[in-house]
Simulated scan of single mutants.
Amino acid sequence: MKIAVGTTGDNLEAWVRSEFGWCPRFVIVDTASMSYFIVSQPVLESHEEASLAAIRTLAQHDVSVVIVAKAQERCRMVMNELGVDVIEGIEGLTVRQAVERFLSEVLYTPEGRKARVKLAVTSDGDDLDAGVGTSLGMCTRFLLVDPDTMEYSVVQVTPKDSPEKISVDAIRAVIQAGATTVITPRVQPQCCRILFQMGAEVAVCEPDISVRQAIQLFKTGRLESANGLINI
């Protein structure tokens, strides 16, 4: 299988970036050997021309899956008609990580979300008795918890000057840590969409409880899923 990943870089450690059509290059990975080659795209004036050029290029290379940060509905439909799956909304992963997560069915596929559970809980402290903080957008640390053993580690997020920047870094941090579910008192719809595409669920808890209490509520099925925000 060949997977094309949109990026501004030229190797497997480059970040997944760019909208389909405006993507300057694709890293095309042969999943059997993880060997790859680079396909650069011409700079065109209109998005439609650029998108058609990208579609022709990927079709010529017999690509089965395209992974990008963003894709317009029309582009996705054309690619699907050609037998190519399009996975979008991917940010905070390198090309290698995106391909590996796709192959392990953690990225995008519902089956991958049933894998071993790791909970990333927003926190205002460094242990299970700390409060759950205020929101994903303002969080500067998570506790990554195994709900079966209650073993945990602290995932730090470098403070930024805006909630939007914190949210991007927070999403990147929890996904790279292997979280399958994020628990937080508050989350923006865009964050939900990105996390869902990356194979992570989002559960919403009350703001005045501890991390330990939030996990117990999750284990007993008493936390509200934020999946309804995905289509907002």
Results as ranks from 00 to 15, higher is better:
residue 1 M to T: 07
residue 2 K to Y: 11
residue 2 K to H: 09
residue 2 K to V: 01
residue 5 V to S: 01
residue 6 G to Y: 08
residue 12 L to M: 14
residue 12 L to V: 04
residue 15 W to G: 15
residue 16 V to I: 12
residue 27 V to H: 11
residue 27 V to R: 05
residue 37 F to Q: 07
residue 42 P to G: 06
residue 43 V to L: 15
residue 45 E to K: 12
residue 50 A to V: 05
residue 54 A to T: 05
residue 57 T to V: 12
residue 59 A to R: 12
residue 61 H to N: 12
residue 62 D to Y: 01
residue 63 V to D: 05
residue 64 S to P: 04
residue 69 A to I: 00
residue 69 A to M: 06
residue 75 C to I: 11
residue 80 N to D: 15
residue 81 E to W: 03
residue 81 E to N: 13
residue 85 D to H: 02
residue 85 D to A: 13
residue 86 V to Q: 06
residue 88 E to Q: 11
residue 92 G to I: 08
residue 92 G to P: 13
residue 97 Q to G: 09
residue 97 Q to A: 13
residue 99 V to M: 01
residue 102 F to Y: 15
residue 108 Y to V: 04
residue 108 Y to T: 04
residue 112 G to E: 02
residue 114 K to S: 13
residue 118 K to V: 09
residue 120 A to H: 09
residue 120 A to N: 04
residue 122 T to N: 06
residue 124 D to H: 08
residue 126 D to V: 06
residue 129 D to C: 01
residue 134 T to E: 14
residue 134 T to I: 12
residue 141 R to C: 05
residue 145 V to G: 11
residue 146 D to Y: 00
residue 151 E to C: 09
residue 157 V to N: 10
residue 161 D to T: 08
residue 162 S to Q: 04
residue 166 I to A: 15
residue 173 A to N: 02
residue 175 I to F: 02
residue 175 I to L: 11
residue 182 V to R: 10
residue 185 P to Q: 09
residue 189 P to Q: 00
residue 190 Q to V: 12
residue 191 C to A: 15
residue 195 L to T: 02
residue 196 F to S: 14
residue 197 Q to A: 13
residue 201 E to A: 13
residue 203 A to S: 13
residue 207 P to D: 07
residue 210 S to A: 04
residue 211 V to K: 00
residue 211 V to H: 07
residue 212 R to Q: 06
residue 213 Q to W: 00
residue 215 I to Y: 05
residue 215 I to E: 02
residue 216 Q to M: 14
residue 216 Q to F: 10
residue 219 K to Y: 09
residue 220 T to P: 03
residue 223 L to I: 01
residue 224 E to S: 07
residue 226 A to T: 04
residue 230 I to E: 04
